[in-house]
């Protein structure tokens, strides 16, 4: 490195030292007496860590409630040192957190935690999703009943489904309302639907076959095919109530017939 580069480029050393808990202050970083000062440099390192830990807690409030503040902060410390944000919008920070929880040994006794994080991530994406009008049931009513099974849908940008072996929708909804795990049957699997009507994000539990049905529609399958798949998944699948439910929840933004 030339002298002029050394004078100009501090970010490489500085950022490398930010990422390590035990690094001393990088070259040239001094206090008012012109002596190196790691304690002063640590203000930056602490700011970075504390702000990213806080951002992760803001994005995954139920995970934080489930494990407790102190544990969460320690866990977020481990996560952020391996996963710095790639862009300055902190509401997009933590896409990798559910996957991290799958493999983070200290939470292996809380097996529903990764799915809770997935559902919170879906909630956050829905909260910031584009403002798009929901599909009006009247649009659907205008199709000829003879060809209704050929109609396809396109999803509202806020809609997402999180299927879990655990009662994730109940866990997240209960904690968001200040409750806890009491009264939740931890043995029940749940298919959670995240959707937004106007600016209000809602989490619903889908009925039997509901997630297969909506996932097929979201993937662009025609209504008839989606209904068949749902019945195959759950014989008690009820088409009429699922259509009513998806309209009410604003899962879709539009519908069209291939001939139209």
């Amino acid at each position: 490195m030339s002298a002029s580069q050394a004078d100009t480029n501090i970010a490489l050393d500085f950022s490398a030292a930010l990422r390590r808990a035990d690094a001393s202050a990088p070259f040239g970083v001094v206090g008012p007496d012109r002596k190196p000062s790691t304690k002063r440099f640590n203000v930056y390192r602490n700011n970075v860590s504390a702000s990213l830990i806080e951002a992760l807690g803001d994005n995954f409030p139920v995970v934080k409630m489930l494990v407790g503040d102190e544990f969460f902060d320690a866990m977020a410390q481990v996560f952020h040192r391996a996963n710095y944000p790639k862009e300055p919008m902190l509401f997009r920070y933590g896409a990798a957190f559910p996957g991290f929880l799958e493999h983070f040994e200290p939470v292996k006794d809380v097996p529903y935690l990764p799915d809770v994080a997935r559902l919170e991530w879906a909630w956050l994406q829905a909260f910031h999703a584009a403002d798009v009008e929901a599909l009006d049931g009247a649009v659907l009513a205008r199709f000829d009943p003879q060809i209704l099974h050929e109609v396809t849908f396109h999803a509202h940008p806020a809609a997402a489904i999180v299927s879990s072996r655990w009662p994730v929708a109940s866990i997240v909804s209960s904690h968001r309302q200040g409750g806890d795990l009491s009264g939740i049957d931890m043995g029940s699997a749940e298919q959670a639907l995240v959707a937004r009507r106007d600016v209000v994000v809602e989490i619903r539990t889908l009925p039997p076959g509901g997630s297969v049905f909506l996932e097929a529609l979201i993937a662009g399958e025609p209504l008839g095919v989606a209904a068949q798949k749902a019945s195959g998944d759950a014989p008690e699948f009820d088409l009429a109530s699922n259509i009513a439910g998806m309209l009410e929840a604003a899962v879709f933004a539009g519908a069209k017939h291939p001939a139209a």
Partner: peptide, 13 residues
């Protein structure tokens, strides 16, 4: 710096 965003206002010489 590089691919990372540090979410702090870091100083320059």
């Amino acid at each position: 710096h590089g691919e990372n965003y540090y979410n702090d206002l870091l100083p320059v010489p």
